[in-house]
């Protein structure tokens, strides 16, 4: 068992739903309520020190309940460790607190997750579309968005 997951479970016994280390990647599925606290703990705990937020993305597990997942990938420069934190969100209420206060660099990742999956990051300073244009309707990476459904900005309709 990895030290990261141990520390995490010790500190937040009620919030960690499950953990695994498949393929050598430490992973923890946590509840969304205290996500900012958990991330700040991972960053600040002297034994962990995850100072890089490498990646954030959403995943759409259409047909499962809860439907959406937010995935954080963290890296610790000093300990040379990685961890993956996952949070499940329900379709009717895909809302999670923003982590911009913990890592300013996570800002655009959250905007991308909103743009692509429609996941709302509560308290985000500027939650706007980032890759698509403002007039675009829907969230293209959701599994129920047809791959070639176009919304042309100009030119003949297809």
């Amino acid at each position: 068992m990895s030290i990261v997951l141990d520390r995490l479970r010790e500190r937040f016994p009620a919030d960690v739903v499950s953990t695994h280390s498949d393929f050598g990647d430490d992973t923890a599925l946590v509840r969304r309520e205290r996500i900012v606290e958990i991330l700040a703990f991972l960053r600040d705990d002297p034994a962990l020190l995850f100072d890089f937020a490498m990646d954030l993305t959403g995943v759409d597990y259409l047909g499962e309940e809860p439907r959406f997942e937010v995935v954080y990938h963290l890296y610790s420069l000093e300990k040379k460790r990685r961890v993956r934190i996952k949070v499940r969100l329900h379709e009717e209420d895909p809302v999670i607190d923003t982590a911009v206060a913990v890592w300013p660099g996570i800002n655009w990742y959250e905007r991308e997750a909103w743009d692509m999956y429609g996941i709302v990051f509560r308290g985000h300073p500027n939650l706007k579309r980032i890759l698509m244009y403002e007039a675009f309707e829907g969230h293209p990476l959701r599994k129920d968005y047809p791959k070639a459904k176009r919304q042309p900005t100009i030119g003949p309709e297809e």
């Binding site: 698509m132 293209p140 968005y145 791959k147 100009i154």
Partner: peptide, 13 residues
């Protein structure tokens, strides 16, 4: 690229 975002040929515009 045949998906929601790519224009299928500039001769459309």
């Amino acid at each position: 690229y045949n998906n929601y975002t790519v224009l299928q040929g500039i001769d459309k515009i």
